[in-house]
Design a protein around this nucleic acid. Sequence first.
DNA 1: GTGAAAGCGCTAACAG
DNA 2: CTGTTAGCGCTTTCAC
Lengths: 359, 359
Amino acid sequence: MAIPAERSPRGPGAEGEGAPLHLHRHAARPTIEDVAQFAGVSRGTVSRVLNGGHHVRPAVVANVNFAIETLGYSVNQAARNLAAGRTGSVAFVVSEHQEHIFEDPNYVLFVSVFGKELRRRGRHLLLTAAEDTEEEIFIGNYLSAGHVDGALLALPHADEPLLARLAQSRLPLVVIGRPLGYEDELSWVAIDDDTSAYEMVSYLVGRGRKRIGTVTGPLNTSGGRDRFEGYKRAVGPTFRASFVAEGDWSLESGRVGAKQILARHHNIDALFAASDLMALGALAALREAGRRVPHDVAVAGFDDSVAASLADPPLTTVRHPCEEIALEALRVLDDLMEGRSAGPEHVVLPTEFVRRRSA
Amino acid sequence: MAIPAERSPRGPGAEGEGAPLHLHRHAARPTIEDVAQFAGVSRGTVSRVLNGGHHVRPAVVANVNFAIETLGYSVNQAARNLAAGRTGSVAFVVSEHQEHIFEDPNYVLFVSVFGKELRRRGRHLLLTAAEDTEEEIFIGNYLSAGHVDGALLALPHADEPLLARLAQSRLPLVVIGRPLGYEDELSWVAIDDDTSAYEMVSYLVGRGRKRIGTVTGPLNTSGGRDRFEGYKRAVGPTFRASFVAEGDWSLESGRVGAKQILARHHNIDALFAASDLMALGALAALREAGRRVPHDVAVAGFDDSVAASLADPPLTTVRHPCEEIALEALRVLDDLMEGRSAGPEHVVLPTEFVRRRSA
DNA sequence: GTGAAAGCGCTAACAG
DNA sequence: CTGTTAGCGCTTTCAC
């Protein structure tokens, strides 16, 4: 407020000459100020154009954009974040070992989509794996300390202490998959595992298969539990626990599970694996046991990961829309971070039956 | 400059009372100012403590640290980066498809180590995959536009346009592996592929193997080329091109390559694969062909990835010190970013012969 | 050794 | 619709 009065004695525009400050500015990145000057507008206007161009005359927008291009200007995220009061980072928190995560094609896709989309929005992806309790505490502290604007969580296990911790923080949170025990209080985006599994197993039943086994996912995860429920509903009163083996999503667990079931029922005619990787393992076990697929035993997977189409025979499976889930999770998180949401949002995305040769 | 003059009529310190601004500061993160006040020192001193505590009395350091802990203070990276004139980000640029990358256990390790180490230093890891030419241009522009403080490059192919582009920018760069064509001008950290391969193949020779085949890596990469050179040196004058098949590091290419060699020489007694994954493929091909390993054919891999010890039989291989490479690359990059390096640094890390049962 | 003060580049009120 | 201005929280000279 005082400045104009002070300036007047020097005459208007006099300080425009106070340029010595700029002398040591060698080949520095152009700033918003440079753009403003070039376009003959104020910093504020340039900022508005940068942030959507609302309330700015189209002609001016064009002018500013021209200036931006000719100067090769690009926004300084640190400055923007500081001014806007955000960190510019979003965390992707996964439980389990980081190496194990990268084995799962679903996670890889998530990382890929999150990374790309966030960069488009001028944000960073922070990959954090909660490998052990110590790491979990560190992550809990780190996230709660305000180092990120929000977090995407893939913590499928029922009693995840980190989930409890984070749920109490003010941090915008979106869970990938339905978070057992926190369905109501947290936002999440998932698929209808139960119905998808039900439809797949019903398909097997419809094809005349009578003795259908299943290798489930971990039963303390919503995905593992719900796909198992769908299986149970579909086989109906013929359900018997001896047709079931619990796996952990991995190829090896699929092989072991299928072997167990085969040992108990040498004459199963179908097998529903709750993940493609496990189906692959089951395929190996069946091959070892001399069973032909799908002639003797029909095999169905879940996820439609790359492995599914490369399998021999290619897997009949359920497409898990990972990319859409990732995008939707990001949208929900954006709503949360920008304060556009009233309460927790729950999104259920449709899956798709994919018929190939294994069933 | 004008401001003090304007303020004086209100009396010194009068603006100290202009506190209403702080009223809407609800449960905000404590700032450096809060710490300074609590510790009874100035912002500058706290900053010094934050950055190593040089030129500060030990007692004061302790005081400030106490304040930091009790207040639960942690630095605001955006502000720090803005003030220090850096972005706080480091890119990890890889060629090829992102999905393909995550198949390679080496890359996964790199991502893991880079991410963790950079976070420790208050920096971010930006994962960028140059999947196609368009992406490459985008990445080139993005990196050159000053969005990152430096970049770690895994671009092994000889004529990588992105490498050429980046090499001309001012950006601090460290290449993982020896960059063909840019050995002198760029910094890099690698292993001695030639010698490592030489030693492995010499070991096979020493075990009495006479007809040694090899599945090489891509011959337009330094790793592929040098391991092949090592092989040639070791087999010496007995070298024949018909004992060689070129692979692409993948399991499948190892299987195909081994088959080709077997078709030409049904009686090979050893096979050196330039990667564990390819060795795994070769193992499968050998099994299909009814050869026993190592009795009929000794098989050696390279990398000592998890796959090596899980193989049947476990692979004799060369340990590729990925973690050390990652750490060293980060150190070199730090030197570059902080202006501590005179010129390009070249680091060659030792490998280790790992004897298991396959050879 | 330590404090004071000048920005870093940007956003977001607030006037007009 | 547009310009002005006050910070965002921190580092970094520059004095003392």
